[in-house]
Amino acid sequence: MNEGVYEELHEAWGGPVTDEKIALAREEMGLSDSGEKASASFEDMAAAEVHFMVAIAGMNRDRLNERIENLSGELAHLSSGSYEYRVASKEWSMLQELNEPHGFFLIRAWRGMFDFIEPVSGVIFLSTLILLGLTPVFADEYTKRTADLILATKHGKRRIVSVKIMAAITYIFVLFILLHFVNLVFQWGKFGGFQGWNAPIQSLPGGLSIDLLYEQSPYGWEVWQFFILSFTIQFFACVAFGILVLFLSVVWKNSMIAFFISGALLGIPFMIQQIGLNRGAFQYVSSFNYSELMKAATLFEQFKVYNVLGYPILYPPLILGIFLVLTSVLTYLIYYRFRYQQVVN
Rank of each mutant, 00 (worst) to 15 (best):
V5G: 08
L9V: 01
E11Q: 14
A12C: 02
P16A: 13
T18E: 11
I22Y: 00
E28D: 06
E28L: 14
G35A: 03
A40H: 12
H51C: 10
M53S: 09
A57I: 04
D62E: 15
D62P: 03
L71C: 10
H77F: 12
A88G: 04
A88N: 10
K90Q: 14
K90P: 02
S93V: 05
Q96P: 03
L98I: 08
N99S: 14
P101N: 11
F104G: 02
F105P: 00
W110S: 00
E118T: 10
P119Q: 04
V123F: 04
V123Y: 08
F125T: 15
T135I: 12
F138Y: 02
T143H: 14
K144L: 14
A147L: 07
L149R: 05
L149A: 13
T153A: 12
G156Q: 02
V163Y: 10
M166Q: 13
L175G: 06
L178K: 07
F181N: 05
Q187Y: 03
Q195N: 07
P200F: 01
Q202Y: 06
S203G: 10
S217R: 02
L229H: 11
S230D: 00
Q234Y: 05
V250N: 02
N254M: 08
F259W: 09
F259Q: 01
I261G: 10
S262C: 03
S262V: 01
G267I: 04
G276E: 03
F282T: 03
V285H: 06
L293S: 05
K295F: 05
A297N: 07
F303Y: 13
G310M: 02
Y311C: 03
Y311M: 08
I313R: 14
L314S: 13
Y315L: 11
P317G: 09
I322R: 02
I322L: 12
R339A: 14
Y340S: 15
